[in-house]
């Protein structure tokens, strides 16, 4: 007994180190398993508050570009306003199949990371605004990511620039499906893998979200094909896609809740029950 205590006293630093190391390693490993919720995230009171403060400052510096974007959007809105008979509509992204205008939450990116392999965004709306995990996030140019975790006022988003992210997407003109991944290299490009070789793809074709995903409505813009090559092992096409969005510069985003989603999920549950 005496010897055990002596051993512990002698190696107290080492034991403390190992204890804390195991905690931190388990946090690391847990964060790499994608679908588990993370304990350490920037969607909490302290970090969200600090990021809000920092963002209010950087927002001031970006006023000019934001103004330009708003001016562009204004011009577009006005052109819609003057060209339609029904002038009462409010401009939220429309023509989204299966999404009512009430199911769109307008939010703002308060923290954006794009320099690691697994990137996350932080938004300033949370469960109080009706945001729930697994909702899709888009902006006026294209898709941004999927909600990962929410607190009362903030939420984190798995960016499409995340090597763990997989989103169903298709080629707009031919309806061939593939899944959208990122190889961790350039922030302007993502990859569409597992595209069948029957598909006729050419440089410049538009890629949109596919209908198989219940997170995103069908037909939201992603990007254009930049390069087509064949994967040696599987003989499927891999497409290098140039994003419409500049992921390094995001302002306002829309969080969308697909109305059909519950319906689809229920239907699939019923099928499983029947089996």
């Amino acid at each position: 007994m005496q010897q055990i205590f002596n051993f512990i006293f002698k190696n107290s630093t080492g034991i403390l180190f190992l204890l804390l190391l195991s905690i931190s390693l388990s946090l690391t490993i847990q964060s790499h398993s994608f679908h588990k919720s993370r304990i350490i995230s920037s969607a909490n009171f302290l970090t969200g508050g600090v990021y809000e403060e920092i963002n209010s400052f950087t927002e001031y510096l970006n006023l000019k570009t934001e103004n330009d974007a708003l001016a562009l959007e204004n011009a577009r809105l006005k052109s819609i306003l003057f060209n339609t008979k029904d002038t009462t509509t409010i401009e939220k992204p429309q023509n989204l199949k299966g999404v009512a205008p009430d199911d769109i939450v307008v939010s703002k990116v308060i923290h954006n990371s794009y320099n690691t392999h697994e990137n996350f965004l932080t938004l300033n709306s949370g469960a109080n605004d009706g945001v729930k995990p697994d909702m899709g996030v888009i902006n006026s140019l294209g898709i941004v990511g999927i909600i990962d975790r929410t607190s009362a006022k903030y939420s984190t988003v798995v960016s499409i620039l995340n090597t763990k992210s997989q989103i169903n997407a298709k080629i707009k003109k031919s309806n061939h499906f593939g899944s959208l991944t990122w190889n961790g290299k350039s922030t302007g490009y993502v990859q569409l893998v597992d595209v069948p070789r029957l598909a006729s793809v050419r440089k410049g074709d538009t890629i949109v979200t596919g209908g198989q995903s219940v997170i995103f409505p069908e037909g939201i813009n992603i990007g254009t094909v930049d390069k087509v090559y064949k994967e040696e092992e599987t003989n499927y096409y891999v497409l290098n896609i140039k994003l419409f969005n500049d992921m390094t510069n995001l302002g306002h985003v829309y969080i969308i809740k697909s109305k059909d989603r519950d319906e689809v999920n229920n239907l699939e549950k019923e099928i499983k029950k029947d089996e």
Binding site: L20, L21, I40
Partner: peptide, 14 residues
């Protein structure tokens, strides 16, 4: 906490 990275900074610092 601030960089949403699980425990990587913690492990490296330790």
């Amino acid at each position: 906490l601030f960089s949403n990275s699980g425990g990587i900074h913690t492990t490296a610092c330790l």
